[in-house]
Design a protein around this nucleic acid. Sequence first.
DNA 1: CCCACCGATTCGCGAAATGTTCATGGCACA
DNA 2: TGTGCCATGAACATTTCGCGAATCGGTGGG
Lengths: 218, 218
Amino acid sequence: MLVVEDEPAIAELVALYLRRDGFGVHLESSGDAALAAIRSLSPVAVVLDVGLPVLNGIEVCRAMRAAGDWTPVLFVTARDDEVDRLLGLELGADDYITKPFSPRELALRVRTVLRRSSGGVSDVLQVGSVRLDVGERRAFAGSDEVSLTSTEFGLLAYLMKSPRQVFSREQLLSAVWGYSSVAGTRTVDVHVAQLRAKFGASSPIRTVRGVGYSADAS
Amino acid sequence: MLVVEDEPAIAELVALYLRRDGFGVHLESSGDAALAAIRSLSPVAVVLDVGLPVLNGIEVCRAMRAAGDWTPVLFVTARDDEVDRLLGLELGADDYITKPFSPRELALRVRTVLRRSSGGVSDVLQVGSVRLDVGERRAFAGSDEVSLTSTEFGLLAYLMKSPRQVFSREQLLSAVWGYSSVAGTRTVDVHVAQLRAKFGASSPIRTVRGVGYSADAS
DNA sequence: CCCACCGATTCGCGAAATGTTCATGGCACA
DNA sequence: TGTGCCATGAACATTTCGCGAATCGGTGGG
């Protein structure tokens, strides 16, 4: 997954959410660097800001297509009038999203674009007997479905994306709740408790005293 | 394969994608030239822009049908209300797609149209006990027919094309209402409520709080 | 054995998302 | 031109969820 965006703050935020959804993310800030990266990295999809300086997103996409590269592209546009330009010309895109967007929305669209272009592979996470279908937003304990809220799902998904890796409460807050969150670190505990209650004995969340939590089979 | 489109940029792009899919593509930019080309080339299918100057797409199709030519036609329309006109006129259209469209989507539909016209298979979507005949635009709950408006049908069909996949309200608006739609996201809710009311207990629409909706059996 | 610290759990409030109803206005069709 | 259907958004009802505070439990060090 390649993200091309010249505003570092936005780029970081987007990367954060995509990584949380299990994508390997590489960042670029200019059009020509993007083209080089696309050639060398062969990403599964490209998130492309239209308003790049010098070589803009549309031109990058056109160059890719002209070179025979059909990697899925998702455009990010700043304003509605840019949308109109998109509408007329660049049908080479697979989807677009308008700023300001919620990172969650972006991640959803990326998955949709990938599913459309690659024939319906939905990404499934599994740790122990717990299974998470990210595309369908469903959770299972063995064969029983467990109903999770949005936050619970995001938290569990983030942990399960990196099994056995330990995350601090602060890490989890910024990753799952976002940078602008005002929630206290105790809130993480509450949701962990909630998850454990819902999964019972098969709960995959391990406490690492003095450090944080991790998703683990045992 | 004949593509009739008066905007050169779009025509070129569409041709690019169709050729990539192995079709031989011929381009025309006006209605009367299209009719001549159809007679002389006998294409396997025609991609026809509704908004052509002078002789528009609908008239071209009507002329073809009147002349006994039942070559599959895929309409490209700029707006949803044109869709209604298409359906109301009950032309021999085999499918339609709204601008702006993803070229991938177009290629997909062309293949579907060709398959249908050669094998006579009408595509039917089914989730749980709800069945949607896309070709005839009819909906059924079990064996009972349910009467849907065109917006309701479009929404339900889009959801059922990707069962269990979750779509945000924004995604649904883009896909069903069109990119240039100005409708608010709550409008989606209203139509979901309509569909649920019409299908009652067998409603296939699942709410995913904080994310959106999906079509689902359970 | 006691104390301090950390984590687990419960509870209630406030906020946000969703469901539903209704009035308006536009558009197609007669 | 009149009629009726339907999309739309506002308004209201309802449910759900996030969050912090308080309490309880457990663990390890002194």
